[in-house]
């Protein structure tokens, strides 16, 4: 393992490895429509040898950059439900702050166990993937619902936002896990928005990505203040994930195989086991 000293002296090798891990995580994430933090954190812990809090901090920096870049690209294409995002953001930001305060009290081992369990849950979500039926075109969409036209199918989907409290609760949990574990938390929000609140998949993903920048910022700032953010590695992770998500989006446009989802779910199960083993060691 390329142990990085806590003196913040970063070796070129550690930075290069972080850059490559960021590229890999970013491209895997983009292919699956997730941020990739769930891959980056275990890479940083298991390969670079960072303590969990530092790995989470570096990953959050990359998560903010990915969310910001993705939202910059999707803004104005009617994919982001701005009003829904602004409402749910209250819950994700509160969850993020709560997570930042509790993360400092939890032992790295505890965080690794939580991470392993969340990674298993994400693997299950990645394999499944589902969608609710759209409403008739003239339906009342309420204050938060909307319409969006899928550019691939040319179909216009009309949707209302149902069971808002469920999505608010999921957003709080997502914000909490985001800061605790250094991930974006979209994998918690998106399935709930789609399954329980009836939001179309692509809108749910774009709206979630839009919120993540804010969610991850409260967490990243708290880690930064505790001296757990290693700037050079954060820079390497940001650059890596930016390149990786551009690559991944291109690859995803070419092939959207079911096999890929299964393969990556398998990777997550392996990652989860490794984190558990490390926590027990």
């Amino acid at each position: 393992m390329l142990v990085v000293l806590l003196t913040m002296e970063v070796s070129p090798v550690a930075a290069l490895v972080t850059l490559l891990m960021g590229t890999l995580s970013g491209s895997l994430g983009a292919m699956l429509g997730i941020g990739g933090g769930v891959f980056l954190v275990p890479f940083l812990v298991l390969v670079v040898g960072l303590p969990f809090h530092q790995a989470a901090a570096v990953s959050l920096a990359a998560v903010i950059a990915t969310s910001t870049a993705v939202s910059a690209a999707t803004a104005g294409r009617q994919l982001i439900n701005l009003r829904l995002g602004m409402v749910l953001e209250v819950a994700t930001a509160a969850g993020g702050v709560a997570g930042g305060l509790t993360a400092q009290m939890l032992a790295p081992q505890t965080l690794q166990v939580i991470f392993a369990l969340v990674a298993l849950f994400i693997a299950a979500v990645v394999v499944r993937g589902n969608e609710t039926a759209p409403l008739p075109p003239d339906a009342d969409v309420g204050r938060l619902g909307g319409r969006f036209t899928d550019v691939h199918t040319g179909q216009t989907m009309t949707y209302a936002v149902r069971r808002l409290p469920v999505s608010l609760a999921a957003s709080f949990l997502a914000g909490n896990l985001s800061t605790l574990l250094g991930i974006g938390g979209g994998v918690v929000k998106v399935p709930v928005l789609v399954t329980w609140s009836g939001v179309p998949m692509r809108v749910a993903a774009a709206t979630s990505a839009f919120m993540i920048g804010v969610t991850a910022t409260s967490g990243a700032v708290i880690y930064y203040g505790h001296g757990e953010m290693i700037p050079a590695l954060a820079a390497a992770a940001v650059l890596g994930t930016q390149m990786g998500s551009a690559l991944g989006l291109r690859a995803a446009a070419r092939a959207r195989a079911r096999g890929l989802r299964r393969l990556l779910a398998g990777v997550l199960v392996v990652v989860s086991c490794l984190m558990l083993v490390r926590a027990m060691a």
Binding site: V214, T217, A234
Partner: peptide
């Protein structure tokens, strides 16, 4: 590095 990180963190704000 500090300025880059601060711009990153202040963009969502």
């Amino acid at each position: 590095l500090t300025v880059g990180l601060l711009v990153l963190l202040l963009t969502p704000v």
